[in-house]
């Protein structure tokens, strides 16, 4: 498979995407952006599966990507529902403000 993208490049991209997503979750204070960053992280894992599947020439990677995609949809549902509840309760989407623990 000449001209194909090397596996290392794919995995590196997945790692960069994952790190960016994690950075977004940690650094962003807005709940909506945190959820979006989570999506990025999940897509990074999905990409890693695809790259691995392509490397071994099996369909398992693509099946797992479908699973991850479903998980993402479910997670987005629950996450957005929580987001609406949170906004109703605290009138803000800032996660640092919306804390009731005194630690």
């Amino acid at each position: 498979m000449a001209g194909a993208i090397p596996m290392e490049h794919g995995l590196l991209l997945a790692a960069v995407l994952f790190a960016l997503g994690l950075g977004g979750v940690v650094l962003r204070r807005n709940m909506l952006f945190m959820l979006m960053s989570l999506e990025v992280m999940m897509n990074a894992t999905g990409l890693a599966f695809i790259v691995a599947g392509a490397r071994w020439g099996v369909a398992d990677g693509q099946i797992l990507f479908l699973l991850v995609l479903t998980l993402q949809a479910a997670e987005a549902c629950v996450g957005l529902a929580l987001l609406i509840l949170m906004y109703r309760r605290f009138r803000t989407l800032d996660v640092d403000v919306a804390t009731t623990m005194r630690g």
């Binding site: 994690l22 650094l27 804390t99 630690g103």
Partner: peptide
């Protein structure tokens, strides 16, 4: 101290 209820710290520590 680690149980401060701030999700971002949790995420960072998990990472």
């Amino acid at each position: 101290v680690t149980q401060n209820g701030r999700m971002r710290y949790y995420a960072a520590v998990a990472g």
